[in-house]
Amino acid sequence: MATAYHNLSGYDPETVPDGSEMNIGIVVSEWNGEITNALLDGAYKTLLKHGVKEENIMVEFVPGSFELVFGAKQLADTYEDLDAIIVLGCVVRGDTPHFDYVCGGVTQGITQLNVDGFIPFIFGLLTTDNMQQSLDRAGGKHGNKGDEAAITALKMIDFSLRNK
């Protein structure tokens, strides 16, 4: 049975909260920069599209995906007015267990930040088997996971504000 490919970044803009009063941090891995810069571009443009002011988007870079957790924690501690932090990275499976350790560590770290923190930390880490899968998810046939992370941030900020 053939699987139909479709863009997974489609959403109803009417369901997205207005971001005009929101402050959002983005931490981006420099590793696999072709992919992570495309994710950043998608997230940034989507935030602007939904009203987040350019001056209210703080972007910082870290060397690799494993450093995303520390970068997100530092950003939260440094800029206390942030309403959410998006982490963007890309880990491509190789021939060693490095992939499993990095992906597991980042997943656990972001989960812990969400449990311990007072703002949402949005998981935007691509974990793919090959570079083509990454390209497909960074503006290719499966959309841009950066867009999806931005929409998630806006919705989670709204959720958080409604439930305080």
Results as ranks from 00 to 15, higher is better:
residue 118 F to W: 05
residue 42 G to W: 05
residue 123 F to S: 01
residue 106 V to L: 11
residue 152 T to R: 08
residue 141 K to V: 13
residue 104 G to L: 06
residue 144 N to C: 07
residue 119 I to V: 14
residue 26 I to M: 13
residue 100 D to K: 01
residue 147 D to P: 01
residue 10 G to H: 13
residue 147 D to Q: 14
residue 140 G to K: 10
residue 85 I to S: 11
residue 109 G to L: 10
residue 62 V to N: 03
residue 87 V to P: 00
residue 152 T to Q: 08
residue 26 I to T: 09
residue 48 L to Q: 12
residue 118 F to K: 13
residue 5 Y to N: 14
residue 115 V to P: 02
residue 45 K to Q: 15
residue 3 T to F: 13
residue 11 Y to K: 06
residue 145 K to I: 06
residue 110 I to F: 01
residue 108 Q to H: 15
residue 106 V to A: 00
residue 26 I to S: 09
residue 7 N to M: 04
residue 122 I to C: 09
residue 82 L to F: 11
residue 156 M to Y: 11
residue 8 L to F: 08
residue 112 Q to W: 08
residue 77 D to N: 15
residue 94 G to P: 02
residue 11 Y to E: 03
residue 14 E to K: 14
residue 35 I to F: 07
residue 149 A to V: 08
residue 52 V to I: 07
residue 14 E to M: 07
residue 102 V to A: 04
residue 93 R to M: 05
residue 10 G to F: 10
residue 164 K to R: 14
residue 45 K to W: 01
residue 8 L to C: 08
residue 153 A to N: 03
residue 57 I to F: 12
residue 28 V to I: 10
residue 4 A to S: 09
residue 111 T to E: 13
residue 20 S to K: 15
residue 2 A to Q: 13
residue 15 T to G: 03
residue 68 L to Y: 07
residue 148 E to V: 15
residue 114 N to R: 08
residue 62 V to S: 02
residue 146 G to V: 01
residue 89 G to F: 04
residue 60 E to M: 11
residue 122 I to P: 01
residue 155 K to Q: 06
residue 36 T to L: 06
residue 132 Q to E: 15
residue 21 E to C: 04
residue 1 M to Q: 09
residue 86 I to K: 01
residue 13 P to N: 10
residue 163 N to W: 09
residue 16 V to C: 08
residue 110 I to H: 00
residue 2 A to V: 13
